[in-house]
């Protein structure tokens, strides 16, 4: 099997779907001839034609609105929002239109669209290229929100998203596009080469939406993470003697509640890690679900490790970004009781 980084895996998913389904088309800012600022759509226009993968005006609202109209007609548009930080002009379209079209029309019209967007920090992108807005989508019923953490998952989940008849927000953790990142920014970069999760089949396969992945089995404490934080949590666990069970959620809507409950009931403790700021973040929802479902199994209060409740700061990148030592502290707190 070929080894692919996450960009190549995503490109392969799009390539496979363009090949398989004439209703699939791609558009977004800089995605056409140039292939996208992160190269995810590289050479797709050259291979599949101008009308299958083309540039859009700088208008996130217009991009999503147009995609919804195409989706209602029966196409399966896959659009790119260049950075998740830029998705807010499209928020009304996603919330008031894409998420509700099926419901309000009694199934008359649907929006089978995929909105891809690089997200998250760790790349010195400052406030406008680093944010993690997943919670604002998770809160909107009718939208699915997917966040892959490996090249294999990125391809399989993206194919699932494109084939899904509901609108899907597909957030790509750009810090791990080129290699897993363990949160130690002062250590040498790692690449996906040799990583087992970088073995990506060339053809069509899916990773179903709503099924989490156990990264590491353990018995002391459950760690819930997604995106880049999967690797930061993994590094933190390896720096302790704590036998933690690490779960990569893969998608937060649909959420693999059974896997979470099973694991937390087994360990009795839980640490939740995300890059997004803490207050009102998705970790709060996970905490509440765990309390509702696992209260009598819990040995300790659930710990949340998250970005601070500040805008994303440029010079303070590594003070803001949840680092392994903060997760180590949370793990120790969780097992101390």
């Amino acid at each position: 099997m070929p080894s692919m980084n996450m960009i190549q895996a995503l490109n392969s998913a799009l390539d496979v779907m363009l090949e398989r389904d004439p209703d699939v088309l791609i558009f977004g800012e800089d995605v056409g001839y140039f292939g996208g600022v992160f190269r995810v759509t590289d050479k797709l226009q050259q291979k599949h034609g101008l009308h299958r993968c083309f540039d859009a005006p700088i208008s996130e609202g217009g991009i999503v609105s147009t995609a919804i109209g195409m989706g209602a007609e029966g196409l399966r548009p896959v659009v790119e929002i260049q950075f998740a930080d830029y998705i807010l002009p499209a928020y009304d379209q996603l919330v008031s239109e894409a998420a509700r079209l099926r419901y309000r029309s009694g199934g008359d019209f649907t929006a089978p669209i995929t909105v891809r967007s690089p997200y998250g920090g760790g790349i010195y992108g400052g406030q406008t290229h680093s944010q993690s807005p997943e919670a604002i989508f998770a809160h909107i019923t009718g939208l699915k929100t997917v966040i892959p953490a490996t090249p294999y998952d990125a391809k399989g989940l993206l194919i699932s998203a494109i084939e899904c008849n509901d609108p899907v927000i597909f957030l790509e953790p750009k810090r791990i596009y080129n290699g897993p990142f363990d949160g130690h920014h002062d250590r040498p970069l790692k690449s996906w080469k040799e990583h087992p999760q970088a073995d990506v089949p060339e053809g069509h396969y899916i990773v179903p939406l709503g099924k989490s992945r156990v990264v590491r089995e353990g018995s002391d404490v459950t760690v819930l993470a997604y995106g880049t934080m999967v690797y930061v949590a993994e590094a933190a666990i390896s720096e302790t003697s704590i036998d933690a069970e690490l779960i990569d959620l893969r998608s937060i809507v649909p959420l693999d509640i059974d896997a979470i409950v099973t694991s937390v009931k087994k360990t009795g403790r839980c640490v939740i890690v995300h890059e997004a700021s803490k207050f009102g973040g998705f970790g709060g929802e996970l905490t509440a679900l765990i309390e509702e479902r696992c209260f009598y199994y819990l040995e300790a209060p659930t710990q949340r490790v998250a970005g601070w409740d500040t805008p994303y700061p440029h010079a303070f990148e590594w003070d803001y970004f949840p680092k392994p030592s903060r997760i180590v502290d949370a793990l120790e707190k969780a097992i101390r009781v």
Binding site: G61, G62, S65, T66, A67, I68, G69, M70, G71, A72, E73, G74, L75, P77, D92, Q93, S96, E97, R100, L101, R104, S105, D108, F109
Partner: peptide, 20 residues
């Protein structure tokens, strides 16, 4: 097409439909 109380938010859908 499905109406909504948010005025104007479907005009772009018309463009997308036409493009399709």
């Amino acid at each position: 097409y499905s109406l909504s109380g948010n005025v104007g938010s479907r005009i772009g859908h018309g463009v997308g439909w036409a493009m399709a």
